[in-house]
Design a protein around this nucleic acid. Sequence first.
DNA 1: AAGCTCTGCTTTTTT
DNA 2: AGCAGAGCTT
Length: 653
Amino acid sequence: MTFSGGRLNREQEAAVKHAGGHALVLAGAGTGKTKTIIHRIAHLIENGVDPRRILLLTFTRRAAREMTDRLRKMVGKSADNIISGTFHHYCLMTMRRMQKDFNIAGATVIDRDDQEQLMRLARARYVEKKEVFPKAGPLTDLYSYARNTNQSRQGYLKKFTEYDEKTIGRIIKVFEDYDRRKKACNYLDFDDILFRFARVLHSSPAIRAKLRRRYDHILVDEMQDTNPLQWLILDGLRDPAKLFCVGDDAQSIYAFRGADFRNVHSFTERCPNSTVLKLQENYRSTQEILDLANWLLAESPLKYNKKLRASRGKGIRPRLIEFEDDLSEAEWIANDLLERHENGAAWKEHMVISRTGFGARAVEAELIARRIPYVFIGGVSFLQSAHVKDLLCLVRCAMSHHDLIAWMRYLTLWPKVGDVTADRMIAGMQPGKSIRDALELLRKHPDLKNESLERIVQGPEIILENMDNPAEAITRASAFLEPLLSSMYERWDKRRQDFNLLARLAERHRSLQGFLETYTLDPVNITQVEKREDEDVVALITAHSAKGTESPVCYLIRVEPGMYPHVRSLGDSDSEEEERRVLYVAMTRAKNELIVTRSLSRSDYTTFYGITDSGSTGTPYFLEGLEKNLVRMELPETGTIDDDDSDIIIPHR
DNA sequence: AAGCTCTGCTTTTTT
DNA sequence: AGCAGAGCTT
């Protein structure tokens, strides 16, 4: 990202060579944060620190991989010896290697979808069908948030929700039921991964001592997005290991997930003898781009005390372009991309940033129609599509007979098996000690007498035969499921190709468990699998996923009332303020050119749900009162837009 | 007990 | 407009 070649400036060098206690590095957008982390690790290794005693915690696996790739170029293969990954990844890996200490043998990691599924079951027990009561989705959010911020359910619900006492009592009942179900199935949800690790770390001095002895240096990226649970983990692992935490409070955009920027603000109180270092010089963007970003922050009632200065100096003023609707917006962007490409620019020099995955749809359709190569980053991954889940659930069945959700899904794929029959079969397996016992019990189950169901047991057996060969297991399982699935789904021919893709992903793994867990924690997007990373493609990306990236030309699309701040955040000033930071993050991705687009007149997004009229009356909007000289206002060249007969339809293909 | 059909609700961001 | 859940039919 930020060029890692080139010399370090004085601030960066001070951070890289910092010796002594813990350090917090406040690094504004584009100030060479990644570069500084990499150089620091290289510096440590060159000064004799054993790479295996360096722990690097990042926010996404993508970031971890990118950093180790760049580090490898500097220090060679020893880069691969540092321990790097997300908090979740690191904690899970460590707990797996110390199974006995953490008591997680045989546990299945479940993703957000499964978690919601389980919550739905728990909810059904306490809530009448038509009753007005929070749905499983929101309940899961509440449950997760309370855990990530390490507070009691009761306290959290009372303080931060509007529910009355009675409702809160019932919500907690549902949560407790969820807990029981989770335990019965031996599941670990995302939060458990952090929670269990943190709990053992703080309740078992012996294990804590053992872990603390392992590291000399712990580096943390995106510190502003860590949550209280993650802080407890860092706190438990530090000393003698030195923390080196890098962050920027103006880029904190994950509060909805429990992130707490006190982890940045209270750092020095929590870590006595620590040093705060600053990186202030922006190397990424031109001053015009930063002026706009600075203006946005200055408009905030909060005091960020941030003013980015461009070491590169002057450049092109950001453009603000207005459209009739999102279709002409998308069309214009595609045209502009094509034009730039014809003039010799590479596709990969362009990034299209959207507030929501959904909001990028029109542009995506247009890119496909115009055959512009792109990757979509963020949004729904292909691992979440129904048929892929079917296959993965079959794999999971072979790993544990307690995996209720997987078994339920697998069994009900079969004709004449609904939830009732499936329940009965699953109950029949529970006395089994091992998965093989359980399969034996299932084979004898009365419901399998039916001739068409004999083959049910074969599915998991195929997987069991190929435990050490994930790719083969996937291939065989696909063939096994095909007759069932092909009749269930439309456009089966298209879907089945995803199975080949899945097998290719599996080739990279030696154990099925590792394969499953890797992609549960960090699902891969289909376009990311298909394309090589260094391929020449336009990046279509959500603002959240864009954090930590940069691009010479950035299109910021749909910067409209209802989007920034997003309608869902309205009414809560903290959330609204977070939206400002989302926009700030998006703006500061641009190196040379920032092109802001919007369609104010007929924003179907705002009219769509609830917002009374399409005029922006009353809806707060961050670009309201934008100083004219900060951007170049434009209308797209007319032409096709006004032709009545052009009646543009986006060609789907 | 399964499976189909209709209705109503939703669409933020992600480990 | 597309999906999940409720209710109805087989």
